[in-house]
Write a protein that binds this DNA or RNA. Structure first.
Lengths: 216, 216
DNA sequence: GACTCCGTCAATCAAGCGTTTTAATCTCAC
DNA sequence: GTGAGATTAAAACGCTTGATTGACGGAGTC
């Protein structure tokens, strides 16, 4: 029995919440800011979502859906595609999610904020979203090590962390990077070259470690 | 004209502030929490530091001193030491600063919090602390690329980011890593093995990229 | 047209925040 | 001891926050 008007303010509220929460985090963001941005009354969030936490939870759920739909764990590549291609696709989509403009960047920024300042919703996030991503990345790393390492090995886990860390770094340290290198841009076209660097860096590392390991 | 008692509550306040600020960030932390932890009255922060921001600034300054003294940019190695050793030393000290227990972890966690939620103090942080670190790391990367790359080149900059990203990842995503791999520990002895991994991963990457570049 | 339900609004509440004021307490030279 | 300055303690101020209230209006039903 949803009315058209209902969905209007409700979705406007969600969009505004996405922008504000992903910029300021749960605690720092205020419902007044969100409602002002949405052009709604402060009471609207209570009416539609119960309270601030309810709005946040609803937003996070929507971010799940969008994130999984837009960047599914397989990321458009077959499981038997060359590991090099899977690595680049993983890195590139990761960066786009984090650095993309507009509403496309919602989910990524929101999740990064959730990591900075964990709320009880973190469990859900890890289970539904991060675990499959981690599994896939460990699989890619294990394939590229090419020395019989299994995705569950500690080596694969460590290498997956090395790759994920590179991907997150640019996003998490934007403020510092801007000061260190003011002409370092992160537009959409630059994201691809950044992804190429990270993929190449990681590829060389994995191949090198594979060779080194055999020599031990 | 400092009294003994003065220094007592003042230093107790600093210690408590270090713990609270480094855990919750500037905005989320409350002076009441800090004062309760320090066993001091709320008015004490006004008396000794002017206001909350003054306390934070004083704390950050102290963290500078401690961080620079304990882990100076050169980190105990000569500038002409082998680049491989310099790389490991850089990574290892970085991790110790971030993951160290007790009051030793102050500065690292505080700076990470400052990055998550920048305050006007960030400029000082970048200028005094991060810039020399970045320069040193770029120098290491350029040396290891061994193909004539200069520390100021974009290639060295990107590789330095890749290394720094790996170092920060374990610290910044502790909550998630604990859930993904509950038996992944970060005790002091484990930090060294972690540092070995990151150093080896990066070393292989740099050497591999150097060879690849020549082939272009 | 009267009634009901749904959505919105301005106004308000209680709690927590940083900060300030005021008074009490302590220390130490004299 | 005493007085002056330094330090602490208690209370309250003003402000912002999330949450709530009760009234208002419009759409649908009979």
């Amino acid at each position: 029995m949803e009315r058209v008007d209902t969905r209007d303010t409700k979705s406007r509220l969600m969009e505004a919440a996405g922008r504000v929460f992903s910029e300021k985090g749960f605690k720092t963001a205020t419902v007044r800011d969100i409602c002002r941005l949405a052009g709604a009354n402060v009471a609207a969030v209570h009416y539609h979502f119960g309270d601030k936490a309810g709005l946040y939870k609803a937003l996070l759920d929507e971010a799940f859906e969008l994130g999984l739909k837009r960047y599914p764990p397989a990321m458009g590549l077959a499981d038997d595609a060359p590991a090099e291609k899977r690595l680049f696709a993983f890195v590139h989509s990761f960066l786009l999610r984090m650095l993309g403009d507009g509403r496309d960047a919602w989910c990524g920024k929101l999740m990064a904020m959730e990591l900075n300042e964990p709320t009880p919703a973190l469990d859900h996030l890890v289970e539904r979203y991060i675990t499959p991503m981690s599994r896939r990345l460990r699989r890619i790393a294990a394939d590229l090590l090419a020395d019989g390492t299994k995705p569950d090995d500690d080596r694969a886990f460590l290498c997956a962390m090395s790759i994920a860390g590179q991907c997150q770094h640019i996003f998490r340290n934007r403020a510092v990077i801007d000061k260190l290198s003011p002409d370092f841009k992160t537009d959409v076209e630059d994201v691809e070259s950044l992804a190429r660097h990270i993929a190449e860096f990681s590829l060389c590392a994995l191949r090198g470690m594979s060779h080194a390991k055999r020599g031990y």
